[in-house]
């Protein structure tokens, strides 16, 4: 799963899609994930980092991850496979 190359993100979770002009805010964990995605990490690597940094169990994270992907798709922020 990759963010589109032209998507701009900031450390505090601000996202801008220059293609559509849409901007988004995100909570801090979303900003954390976006930064890792920008850095080219794989889904598995990102999840591992979350499990290490955050107080969350694997199954909760898996459940929320699906929803996270849907949100990015809805917002048109993902590179087409």
């Amino acid at each position: 799963m990759k963010l589109k190359a032209n998507i701009a993100t900031s450390d505090n979770g601000f996202i801008f899609n220059p293609a559509t002009g849409d901007s988004y805010t995100s909570n801090s964990i979303a900003a954390f994930i976006l930064a890792l995605m920008k850095a080219g990490k794989t889904d598995a690597e990102i999840k591992l980092e979350i499990l290490q940094a955050y107080d969350v169990d694997q199954s909760t994270l898996e459940r929320d991850w699906e929803d996270w992907v849907l949100q990015l798709k809805d917002a048109n922020l993902l590179e087409a496979k």
Binding site: N27, Q71, A75
Partner: peptide
């Protein structure tokens, strides 16, 4: 932890 989300 909090569920990650973005908001337009």
């Amino acid at each position: 932890y909090e569920r990650p989300f973005i908001k337009k």
